[in-house]
């Protein structure tokens, strides 16, 4: 993904990403690129996109950590918050699928969800790489239709599970229990001893 130019050349990407102008441009560019690659035509509701950003900003600021060592982990959490908000507020609809689209391919099985996931993964990876010299190694599950069935069904029941699924797709350890609660490094170690791992709803 090609990111829009930073709104200020001295700003890290994570700061630019907290501006609506950058978010809208990046999302539009992602939608165009995904359309070129898949042949799916999307319609974007810009009013809803602004509402997504506003809701995400409120959620983002509510749990923003103060300790520097927690900030890289918060990048993944913030990307998950964005995916949850996109899925809840549905700013995109599909205008047309290409002829003969194979609906067992995740890109056509759930085209809107596919666009949201690709956007969030791309921004997540670029912030980690650009601002924290980290790397994102996406999982092979990203291309597995069975995982997408589970993803779509689970987030329909509980949109917060989108945050855990994004971790899964990004190759990180998902936090299935209370995924919308950010745990600092110290709290995460303690919490893992108390929260049991929930199993995903099985989809046959």
């Amino acid at each position: 993904m090609t990111l829009p130019a930073s709104t200020d050349s001295d700003q890290p990407i994570r700061k630019s990403a907290q501006r609506l102008r950058w978010f809208v441009q990046a999302f539009e560019e992602q939608a165009e690129q995904t359309s070129r690659e898949t042949g799916t035509r999307y319609t974007v509701d810009h009013g809803r996109l602004a509402a997504v950003f506003a809701q995400w900003l409120k959620d983002f600021q509510a749990q923003k950590p103060e300790r520097d060592e927690d900030k890289p982990a918060y990048v993944g959490f913030a990307a998950g918050l964005m995916l949850r908000t996109l899925i809840e507020m549905k700013p995109v609809s599909v205008a047309a699928l290409p002829g003969g689209a194979d609906t067992t391919n995740p890109a056509y099985f759930w085209p809107e969800g596919y666009l949201y996931v690709v956007f969030c993964l791309n921004v997540r990876g670029l912030v980690l790489e650009g601002d924290y010299h980290g790397e994102q190694h996406t999982s092979a599950l990203l291309n597995e239709t069975r995982t997408w069935w589970s993803f779509k069904e689970n987030v329909a029941d509980d949109p917060s599970l989108a945050m855990a699924f994004l971790d899964l797709f990004a190759g990180d350890e998902p936090q299935w229990s209370v995924p919308h609660l950010f745990r600092t490094g110290r709290i995460r170690g303690l919490a893992d001893r108390f929260y049991k791992q929930e199993t995903l709803k099985a989809v046959d």
């Binding site: 809208v24 810009h46 996109l49 602004a50 509402a51 506003a54 809701q55």
Partner: peptide, 10 residues
């Protein structure tokens, strides 16, 4: 336009 959308969303 974005300012208006943001103020409306907030």
């Amino acid at each position: 336009d974005l300012a208006s959308a943001l103020v409306t969303a907030m």
